[in-house]
Each structure stands twice: as C-alpha cells, then as structure tokens.
Nucleic acid binder design. Structure first.
Lengths: 100, 100
DNA sequence: TTGGGATATCGGGAAAAATCGATATACATT
DNA sequence: AATGTATATCGATTTTTCCCGATATCCCAA
C-alpha cells in the first residue's frame, strides 16, 4: 500500500466522483445486461457517460485507481468492469488514523 | 473539510515526511529554546533543516498543510511553530472509512 | 531607529498531471 | 475473414505542481 500513490489517485475531482458512484452502483447507473453490480461492478462505458470525459481519459483514470489498489477489475467479454476494493479503504482509514 | 484539498496536500513526499516528523517531534528535532513541542510544535527553521529544501519551499508546504487543516500554527516572537491537528486526522480517517 | 534573523510572498523555469483525438487491441458476431 | 463494439494505449497540448532565488514583512535587540 503506497501512501503517496493512493493520495495522488485521490487528488482529482473526477476520480473522487467515480469512487462515490461506485459505492452505490444501483443508485447511479442503469441496469446492466451482462453482469451484476455486486459481483463485478460497472463497465467503463457506463462510467464514462456519467463523467462527461472522453473514453480515453476515463480508461486512464480507472487505471490509476486500479494501480493504487482502490479498485478491482474484471474482464467479461468485451467489457471491463470496475468495482471498489472496500478492503483498501478500510486499510487506508486505519493508516490515516494510526501511522499518517 | 475539503476532501480534494486534503488529498492534494498529502500528494507530496516531502509533505508526508514533514507530517511524520511532527508526529514525534522530540524524536526527530533537537531541543528548542523558546517553545514546547507539545504546546506549539516545531518552528519552520528546524523543519527546513531536516527537509533539505529551501526556506521558501518549506514555508509554502507548511502553508498548504495548514490551509488543508492538517496543521495548526502559532507565532511566538520571530518564530512560527507548526504542529499537527490530530483531530483533522481522525476526521479524515472516519471520512475515508464511511463516506469516501 | 537601525540592523539582523525568521518567516512569508512573489515570479519564474522545469517537471508532472490532466485531458484530448487518433489509433491499437481484444473480443463477439456474422 | 470481415465488421462492429468496448477498452487500452499513444502522442500532443494545456494546466497544475514542484521548487527555487529574490525580495518583502515582521519582530527583536542594541
């Protein structure tokens, strides 16, 4: 768990927004055909539509959050689904409380 | 408590380092003549020496951490002392756990 | 009230991040 | 094999951050 990398990943309004949407996918995204929110999360295209950023930017941002360990991804067919890694947020919370 | 501002403040190796030093001033800084670590923290000059950055950079960095609410400052004579605002770290920890 | 020391602010050059369009890759369907 | 769709990567431009030196401000002591 690289503190600096995580804080950099969190230093962007759009990325914070994405994380908050992914906290309650059923609230912020329409039904998905091929996969379950709970199991695998939300696909890139859905996230992109809400963001209002280009596909390439959103893909990169998701990569940044993934690399920092805050998201997990699953490829199913032509789609890549992203969901939060809740464990990472708990670990981060503890880190902020005890060692930061 | 502005999430984004806080995460930006934490997105820098030197600033993280400073925060960690200020967690245990007596361990990382020599005795101070004019003030108490517990009460007011450590003065800019001491912090600068450990950083190896210029005086202006360190002053700016402390300002960033102060503005984000992570530090508190006290002016005594010609010195400005900075110490951690532990309450802010607890609040941040909770925020990461519950709302982020 | 003048000089010196501590800190803050200003202006700038270099490095990194944000963000895009274009293109590549990967998979599914026909 | 060819086409279409979803995502990833590349290259480029703009914006932001990093970090410095120079200067200004603030405070103390002589």
């Amino acid at each position: 768990m690289d503190q600096l990398e995580i804080f950099k990943a969190l230093s962007n309004k759009s990325r914070l927004q994405i994380l908050s949407w992914l906290k309650e996918p059923e609230k912020y995204f329409p039904e998905q055909e091929h996969a379950d929110f709970e199991k695998v999360g939300v696909c890139v295209g859905q996230i992109q539509q809400k963001c209002g950023l280009t596909q390439s930017t959103v893909s990169e941002y998701l990569g940044i959050l993934l690399k920092a360990g805050l998201l997990e991804s699953t490829r199913i067919g032509q789609w890549t689904y992203y969901k939060r890694n809740e464990k990472a947020f708990e670990t981060l919370s503890d880190l902020v409380k005890t060692t930061l």
